[in-house]
Design a protein around this nucleic acid. Sequence first.
DNA 1: AGTTTCATATGG
DNA 2: CTCGCCATATGAAACT
Length: 550
Amino acid sequence: MIAVVADSSGGGVLRPLDETGHPSGPDEHVADLAAAMAARDATRPRWLWAAVDQVYPRLLEAGVRVHRCHDLELAEALLLAYDGRYGEPRSAAAAYARLTGTPVPADQAARQAQPPGDRQGTLFGDGPAPIVADIPQLDLLAAVYRDQRTRLAAGEHPARMRLLIAAESASALIAAEMGHTGLPWDAAAHDEILTSLLGEPSAVRSRTGLTPPRRLAELSARIAELLDAPGLHPDSPAEVRKALRRAGHDVPNTRSWVLKQVDHPVIPVLLEYKELYRIWTAHGWSWREQWVQQGRFRPAYVPAGVVSGRWATRGGGALQIPKAVRGAVRAAPGWRLVVADAGQLEPRILAAVSADTRLARAAGTGDLYAALAADSFKGDRAAAKLALLGAMYGQTGGAAAPAIAVLRGSYPRAWAYVEAAARAGETGGLVRSWLGRTCPPSALESSWADEGASGRSRGRFTRNFVIQATAAEWAATLLATLRTRLWDSAAELVFFQHDEVIVHCPVAEAEQVVSALEDAATATAEMLFGQSPVRFPLTIAVTTSYAEAK
DNA sequence: AGTTTCATATGG
DNA sequence: CTCGCCATATGAAACT
């Protein structure tokens, strides 16, 4: 392990540490930190630093990648949460301050307040010093690391927490790399899609912005005509609702599924308008102008940005790319997109963590829902799926209720697992994922009057947390494993969305990438769950366009 | 005029 | 009495 701090002129100091966090050699001052790190990374040390998002983007710009790291800040967040101290400052400096009983420096409190992903550049180059100024920075990093090591060992499953921290740190490297690399985005293909859906873009700029393309304008006029409401704005729910009421249809809101139940000639037109309007505003020409440069879409990924440990993104709506525009994601000439999707991930996770023998047997097949249906639902696959989703989300009523009752009777251990998580939440307790991510405590803001309702809502949250958070760490481990296996190839990880990953690679490497994915999935299941009968099959497509996957 | 909330869409 | 999880992003509407 090598602890690293940078100075403001591109150099820095390296300090070799043994695995316990004590110096194993002299400090080394280097003038070109990126080059020095690149050279030393050949032996695959674990780099110890305050936070990936402070340091790594600058290294990537210098063309340097590293194999492994320990991100003190992400680890601190996990360890604090584990002790039920979710909201406390998690920077390395704050951790050091807690450790030594000194106050957290003001600039660190400020960093804490910044949204993640918006605070790079404080370790290299300008900006405030990232860590306490009056003690040598490497001492601080090492001290916090040693403390984290002790706290980690005190937990119930140290090996699992160690894996979680490693996977989380790797996720942070990957997120930075992915943001740097970008998702191949073909502007011409995007144009073709938009034009075929929306018609020619309007060249006219009104005071309020761009006027709608031809097809939207036509639909808008047609809607106004059918509702006998000249000048109506179809994107204003209030106006639409008023016009429908005049036409004899009183709807509570204008959501698609509500409108679908109304019998009026304007409805299909309105629904089409809503769909196209959405694409125009969220992923149309203006969006591309803002987010796509040199043929790549570069959103900012925020690993563990969601309480469950899923990634979030800041800007560009990267995790909500509509299916209709995915044809714009195209491989470079001579390259392919390898699109892999972990099907039925969450129910498989439930089978693995609960060790419900019967559910695990179903999860040992390629189609868990079908196996479940054959086993207990008289062949009704849809009912089996509803039952599992209902159980994982805490649904109690509705059409799924009978199916949930069947699940409860036939798969008692799986049922008990999510029920225990729900009870813990309802009674104010904390729950943990398989590897040890702990849910945040409840906000404690509810009044006595809605205590019951908020308790049940809290129960649904914790019930789902144990599954969703474990699924997220499965995916993070897969990603980290895959990255290692692809290290020496030209392949680039270009997209990740909860249970789906896209690799961009030369045609000649596609087969190797497919194998790497399959190996990584197998290894991941083994690392998390050991010898479990549960399988985690990937659906893998080698294509030139994201739209062709699925 | 700027900021916050609401309504509605997208994704898993 | 009600009752399905986690998100981001847009424009309209409401608010300061």
